[in-house]
Amino acid sequence: MYGYLRPLKSPHHDYTLFRAHYCCLCKTIQSEYGLPFRAGLSYEMAFFALLLNALQGADVSIRRETCLIHPFRKQAVFKSSPTMSLCAHLNMALLAGKLSDDIADEERFRPVRRIGLRYLESRAGNVFKGYSRLVSDAYESIRLLEGGKVDDVDAISALFGELLAALFLEVSAGSGLEPPEPMIHFSRVLGRWVYCIDALDDLQNDFRAKRYNPLIYRYKETLLSSDSLEKAYESIGSQEAVRLRLLSEHIMSEYRLFRMRLGLYSVEIDDIIFRTIPCACARIAKKNVVKEKK
């Protein structure tokens, strides 16, 4: 859905564990919901599944399989487990929330989205419904703030953070895991970060498409008084980079508090926390500047 939490391309690592989790979730979604919904799998969910398995100390058991996208070269697939199944349901619940939000917001592809949502709900089980209730409640609160053209980025991103923390607790409870306190706070801050970076990433498109984005209202003076929109975007990017930096530092400090529990898995998770997150912040914050220089 967002795609910010994935390992960077590297000549030194092939990130087998992350890829195996992604492939396992993809296959689980196909078996539970059908082939087209594989496209709805997010990198964030693969990261989430990796984190949960790490906390549970799950055995690393990988098999090699082909699939529709990789018909010739066998790919690493993590073993199926109840945790992976819960993550697949959670991914679909988040997708359903996103679809209904898009249906309410956008004219484009509305009928297609409606069909997708109806089909998804028709195949839903109790687990999906439980997650879906949490997601739709959070989206409802976010929509209320969006309707009021709220400019408080911290307040609106906090709702998303709370949603992620609640979902994390729900999935942990479902897989018989008692997460450490810093872990819950970590998911809360991570949720905030995802919301903030997505808002900055979408700023230009939202402004052009006249869609709500809290940053437009937060920086309305900058947008109204700048000589050009490019300069305004640049100024917003540099100011929001501070928020992103604080959030990523916060994520890292919370992560350090439970990192020792992750065992073998921590190598790949470390990479996402300490490399991917700062790089994503840099890329998005400098997006406007780079474009202008080109």
Partner: peptide
């Protein structure tokens, strides 16, 4: 504080 560096790709 300083903003992230332009070429923050460690790889």
């Amino acid at each position: 504080g300083t903003i992230f560096s332009h070429n923050a790709n460690p790889y």
